Amino acid sequence: MDTELNDPQYIAALEEAERMLGFRLERFLGTTDAEPPNAADFKRIATVQTFGAAWPRTEHLDTRTRALISVTIAATLGVLEPLRGQLRIALNNGVTKEEIVEAFIQISAYAGAARAFESYGIAAEVFGEQEP
């Protein structure tokens, strides 16, 4: 990870991720001995694309709107661990719990009740992490 820490785009993306999530991402970005050497490249590129390129684009969509869209996408796809992060980003950027519930009503109507209920279970857990 030493070479990545010399990359200003990667550093900026990590700082943006921390601002949005409220914690550092490095604990998720390390590699194991079982992973091939280019695994670190994948994690760096994905981090820069997400937090260095997509999230900062606020000219047409503000961060709050982008966060609610991201919750909806992750829930609809059924990617539950990424959904957990998207929910945290949404709540940290002004989306209310009530607005998130309304998004799940839409998800239920268009992606199906089973997918919505499964994903909402993650939302309920994240809501429990938040101070009342």
Rank of each mutant, 00 (worst) to 15 (best):
D7S: 10
Q9L: 12
Q9V: 03
Q9P: 00
Y10C: 01
Y10Q: 01
Y10A: 05
I11S: 03
I11R: 15
A12H: 07
L14R: 02
E15N: 15
E15G: 06
A17P: 09
A17W: 03
A17V: 02
R19L: 12
R19M: 01
L21Y: 10
F23S: 14
F23W: 14
F23L: 14
R24H: 15
R24G: 13
R24N: 15
L25W: 02
F28N: 00
F28V: 01
T31N: 14
T32N: 13
T32F: 12
D33A: 14
D33V: 06
E35M: 14
P36E: 13
N38R: 07
A40R: 07
D41H: 11
D41F: 14
F42K: 13
K43F: 07
K43W: 08
I45S: 10
I45W: 02
A46Q: 09
A46S: 15
T47H: 04
T47A: 10
V48T: 08
V48L: 09
T50V: 05
A53R: 12
A53P: 00
W55I: 00
W55V: 04
R57G: 03
E59W: 04
E59V: 04
H60S: 11
L61M: 15
T63K: 12
R64A: 05
R66G: 05
R66D: 05
L68V: 01
L68W: 01
I69S: 07
S70K: 03
S70T: 12
S70M: 07
S70H: 08
V71P: 11
T72F: 01
T72C: 15
I73D: 03
I73P: 09
A74E: 09
A75K: 02
T76L: 03
L77G: 12
G78N: 04
V79M: 09
V79D: 04
L80D: 09
L80K: 06
P82I: 01
L83M: 07
R84Q: 09
R88I: 11
A90T: 01
N93H: 14
G94M: 00
K97S: 11
E98S: 11
E98P: 04
E99A: 11
E99F: 06
E99Q: 13
I100M: 08
I100W: 05
I100Y: 09
V101W: 01
V101H: 04
E102V: 11
A103W: 02
A103E: 11
A103Q: 09
F104R: 05
I105T: 10
Q106W: 07
I107N: 05
A109R: 08
A109V: 10
Y110E: 10
G112R: 06
A113Y: 15
A113G: 12
A113H: 15
A116L: 10
E118F: 00
S119T: 08
Y120P: 03
I122V: 15
E125F: 05
E125V: 08
E125W: 04
E125H: 12
F127Q: 10
F127A: 04
G128W: 08
Q130C: 09
P132A: 12
